[in-house]
Design a protein around this nucleic acid. Structure first.
Lengths: 112, 112
DNA sequence: CAGGCCTATCGTAGAACTACGATGAAGCGC
DNA sequence: GCGCTTCATCGTAGTTCTACGATAGGCCTG
């Protein structure tokens, strides 16, 4: 089985747009982030993305005992929650955690 | 409308049994905690319980725009997740956050 | 350009969540 | 004991989640 070509995405290819939000949105976003993380598969994805600071692609499909479509769906949830962002790199897509959002979520959890 | 009698639960009435868990359980519990917190109403309950370190009772029902049964259901979810524990105090029930579990959850989130 | 790999999306079935009112059980005060 | 308050549980309806296979599109390789 031919292995996938090594990923060559730039580690710093995930910008941090502008995490400015009103206080009212925080609560909504806070719950959304917790909800997005509240599934073993998605939690595992977050861990995998966090451990390798650079972004990986569909290696996530290999790392999870789920169908490709299911993994893609979980990635969509994480992306819609804002925790993860994906950048197209030729035929594949590289996902990485949004550091600012993760930091914000951590701060909100720590402030509980 | 006669106000409820002031709560008189002891602030330290929430013991910390023994947070010993295997590493494998952590992931399951981690997801469960995030999932439990992943709802605006439950997040609000957690905030309310965290702000007053002592435990409150069904004042939560007054504080939330939900029916009593719904609040009770949310409390059940939080209780089953282990984030919250309730102690019976006569006719009412006092809820409080389990400090050890909350600390553990915070640590796991911070370690992401 | 044709074929192949990598993802996203669609459609679907079953399970779980969320909300409510109604009902039931437990304890306090008269 | 009787009624009142407080909370949990039951039953239910509508929505959402979760998983999968099948399908479609985009981009490299030959």
């Amino acid at each position: 089985m031919k292995r996938r070509r090594p990923v060559r995405c730039a580690p710093g290819a995930c910008p941090t747009p502008t995490p400015r939000r009103a206080a009212a949105d925080d609560d909504r976003a806070f719950a959304a982030w917790c909800k997005a993380a509240g599934h073993p598969a998605r939690l595992r994805i977050l861990r995998l993305l966090a451990h390798r600071t650079t972004c990986v692609c569909g290696d996530l499909v290999d790392a999870l005992p789920l169908a490709q479509s299911t993994v893609s769906q979980h990635l969509k949830v994480l992306k819609q929650a804002g925790l993860v962002r994906g950048t197209i790199d030729g035929p594949r897509v590289c996902y990485c955690i949004d550091p600012a959002v993760l930091r914000r979520w951590k701060a909100l959890v720590a402030a509980l």
